[in-house]
Design a protein around this nucleic acid. Structure first.
Lengths: 354, 354
DNA sequence: GTATTATCTGGCAACGTTTGCAAGGTCAAT
DNA sequence: ATTGACCTTGCAAACGTTGCCAGATAATAC
């Protein structure tokens, strides 16, 4: 493992000179420069970033990203965009999956120990202890950026962090309202919902809030039996949710799904149960991932931009690392992408089959 | 950013003693131990892993993973399993997406500079220059592990690496044969294929090889017009591929898709073109990701285990880091999962509609 | 009592860099 | 010739750890 010392020796110059060449500094004779360059090539020298980081204080050129579930393409695409930006700036990304158990806390500690340059958080709700770790990180000058849904009832401790972190947010409550409004405009009156929060915290979920608000606004009554909660955020969750909804024996003509994955599962269950979508049942969902284009039928879904999230997070952190003061707030618009999973309800069709 | 020195001072002991406490070494009085422990708590001390790595030589406790496309759930699941194992051993994972452009080379250099402890490679084919970088890595004692398909015509340079790296492999050619055999057993005689390699390298792809072999074995002739090549490995690729196949105007009753993503795209195109699957056209694919369960109809697909790949890669690297000599070869079985995307062809039904 | 061993502690060099500083050059202007 | 400005170079101190070594003290054995 060739070191700078070896390079210097091989080139017949001092370590300082070799260092200057490597860092492209001025005040080096062309002769010395050539000798060092050759030595570097001949020895396959690669600078030791560990030693560099140590002497430079911070500057490990590493960003950490806490993501809830990388196997969900929504998160995967955010992560990809994040990584792409980091790569362009010669930064490296440490990936942390936080779905199972309580990994977050340990990961945050690891970040501190690794003298990481910045931390991005996507899709994990934070416990009190984790927040205090984040505060420690901030105190030590490590920038933090988060992606989050507007409207969640946040741990009040988060307020302290609020104006010290970069935040990209999007209004899923508004998105849900748009989706429901659209369903109503198509004549739907009995609309079911598939949610992933626990039942007793149902109204904490902004998507559920939007769902409710839109129904109320349109003068429809809320029937909590039509709202399935506590599902896994996955296709299997949607599958199960749909079956539960059917067992309710309360007809609905449309279903709002928490996200595309859930909707895909729901779609699969409909198919198995012989329910035609959208003829007999309309479905809307959220995220608008690539999948929603290729389902049968393609899903009408609320678009939550993903690439933009990843890019904002990375760019914010990198700007902070450079000592700049970038805008710390970024609001992403959401909008409804119409496809074929929703159909109009005939006027006389009051009770859905489902 | 409290340092060990500060801890020592605060506790009224020497740095060495503080260090001993932190590393749980013997020969420390309980009194000293208590004082140091308290100082650590009061100062929120976290050891600086950068400094530790520097003095310990290697031991950065970081693994790098080069993965072709993290937004593909096949790769994502391998990555998740890899990360989970790393996490359990207090290792951190550097994520590198290699799909766009020539990132691999630069990433390998970054790995060297970061004194990484091990490298896993999934789904990227390696150029000559990249291989020589890998050799350098190996020379420097960095273990390497790869996941790969049997049967690819490999860069002969790879042979040199072969017995120095951990390799988990699976026979997709065999998988393709199983899939085709099954189609034939269901009476299919004209079978199309959707592939992602370039046309002129078509027979390099083991899946194409298996496709061909199975047809030949069953006495069916190969019609290259029924084999679409050069598709993107994505839903959009499958969508496009299916449309090309239809335009061939050569009827086929079944289609073999390169993987689930491609199959999902193909399915979507069928739907749009009004072709019923499996009644009018059967589809088989490979990977057997979670998606294949929830498509309409659920896909018959060749299972390529994912979690096992990620776990093997991580465990191999970690064992090597520990100086052990783990088995360096691991063959994963593939098998066909039957679902509803294939139907039997009536005896008299010779020409397919597609 | 001394010798031997076990336990505890602090000093110091090392890991591979960067960087401030001072010393030694060269060269043009005086 | 002398001055000063500017290049070029190497020395040495840092960065935060670990781990060897040598003292110091306490405990045990004779």
């Amino acid at each position: 493992m060739s070191t700078l010392k070896e390079v210097a020796k091989h080139a017949g110059v001092s370590i300082s000179t070799a260092s200057r060449v490597i860092n492209g500094k001025e005040y080096v004779s062309t002769e010395a420069r050539q000798k060092v360059t050759r030595a570097i090539r001949e020895l396959d020298y690669q600078p030791n970033l560990i030693a560099q980081s140590l002497v430079k204080g911070r500057e490990t050129r590493q960003l950490g990203i806490l993501v809830y579930d990388i196997s969900n393409s929504y998160f995967a695409e955010i992560t990809m965009a994040f990584e792409a930006v980091a790569y362009q700036h010669d930064y490296t990304v440490i990936l942390c999956n936080t779905a199972e158990g309580t990994r977050t806390l340990k990961y945050l500690d690891m970040f501190m120990q690794r003298q990481i340059d910045g931390v991005a958080i996507i899709g994990s709700q934070l416990e009190t202890e984790e927040i205090s770790r984040l505060q420690l990180l901030l105190q030590r000058g490590v920038p933090i950026a988060m992606a989050r849904e507007k409207g969640w009832l946040l741990n009040p401790l988060l307020d302290v962090l609020d104006n010290q972190t970069g935040i990209v947010e999007f209004d899923t409550s508004e998105g849900a309202r748009m989706a429901i409004d659209y369903l109503v405009s198509q004549g739907h009156r009995r609309i079911g919902g598939l949610f992933t929060v626990e039942r007793d915290r149902l109204w904490d979920d902004p998507r559920a809030q939007g769902f409710r608000q839109a129904l109320e606004k349109n003068g429809l009554q809320i029937n909590e039996d039509l709202m399935v909660a506590d599902l896994k955020t996955s296709q299997s969750g949607g599958f199960l949710g749909m079956s539960k909804l059917i067992h309710q024996k309360i007809g609905c003509t449309a279903v709002f799904a928490y996200n595309d994955e859930v909707a895909i599962g729901a779609l699969a269950h409909c198919r198995q149960a012989g329910i035609r979508v959208p003829e007999e049942l309309s479905i809307v969902s959220m995220d608008d991932t690539e999948h929603s284009l290729y389902t049968n039928p393609p899903l009408t879904s609320v678009r939550i931009p993903r690439r933009e999230q990843g890019e904002f997070l990375a760019e914010y952190l990198l700007a902070r690392v450079r000592g700049k003061n970038p805008p710390s707030r970024f609001s992403l618009p959401v909008y409804l992408t119409l496809r074929q999973s929703v159909s109009q309800v005939p006027n006389n069709h009051d009770l859905g089959r489902v």
